[in-house]
Amino acid sequence: MGVEVDNKEPAVELTEAETELYDRQIRLWGLESQKRLRTAKILISGLNGLGAEVTKNIILSGVNSVTLHDIQVVTEEDFCSQFLAARESLGKNRAKASLERARALNPMVDISADTQPLEEKAAEFFGTFDVVLIIGQSNNELLRIDAICQELGVKFFAGDVWGMFGFYFASLQRHSYVEDVVKFKEVEAKPNQKAKFEKYAVPVQREVNYPAYSAWIDFDANAAGYQRQLKKDGPGVILLGVLQKFRTVHKRDPSYKSREADIGLLKAIRDELAPKSALSDNSLEVLFSQISPAVAVVGGVVAQEIIKVVTRMEAPHRNLFIFDPDTCAGYVQVIGG
């Protein structure tokens, strides 16, 4: 699917109903962007709280279609943040359980559910999307899908939220976009008036290369050259490493049901991965389930990035995003070049 092939104007025209519905956002990103959204096909795999938040935002923006993918069922934990699945759907497939409310958000978007395991999906499956977002998978699976997406020119995002902590990684290959650059011009002064300057925006076309997900796997947070950065930003990158390691080793995420024991396991991994890091015991207290407001922040950021990618307006962040719930800082790190 289309990466650089079509920089030409999308062929669709918006209907009057669409123009009216999307009025407030068209005033922000313009008609052209709205038309590009109108053609975009998105895969969201992993319909937990984060999946639900991104799904909501993406559907509201007016994309062409969203495929909700999940093999898991709705559990009590989803009550903390997965608002697309009704409480009555406990035990049902999460993607299917989310369909009804997802569709109600915007009847103009084509929404479907897919419950086949990702491992069974052939490469062509991913090729039918413009953007793929994978939530809740192991690093191995993320690497595999990212490699397929690289091959097919599909934009790849991986993201997760643990409790109040969250991240995403964007693997966008070569991405071109338009960015407004603010300039000043002298306004034609009337006689007897001093010169005035006016701000105006010039759209500039740019192109950036994004490293693959493997760049994150290869990244060494203990490298000497990285320590200053780490001190400035806080230990978010370390924490992400710890949580992903936990998932790899224990084949699950920390659970509120075994809260104390899992905090112990997390500490052990931390002490092994980054013995002298600034990652405090306190920050291991809020990593359970998915806490709605934090999910809303990360889900908002991820959805906005997907919109940027689809509309090719403004630079997508490059390329690892960390949300620090302690300070509410959200920052990006360039991983791999």
């Binding site: 935002n57 922040v297 908002g300 950021v301 959805a303 906005q304």
Partner: peptide, 8 residues
């Protein structure tokens, strides 16, 4: 106004 900024 957009959904994402409001959500964040």
């Amino acid at each position: 106004a957009i959904a994402t900024t409001n959500a964040i």
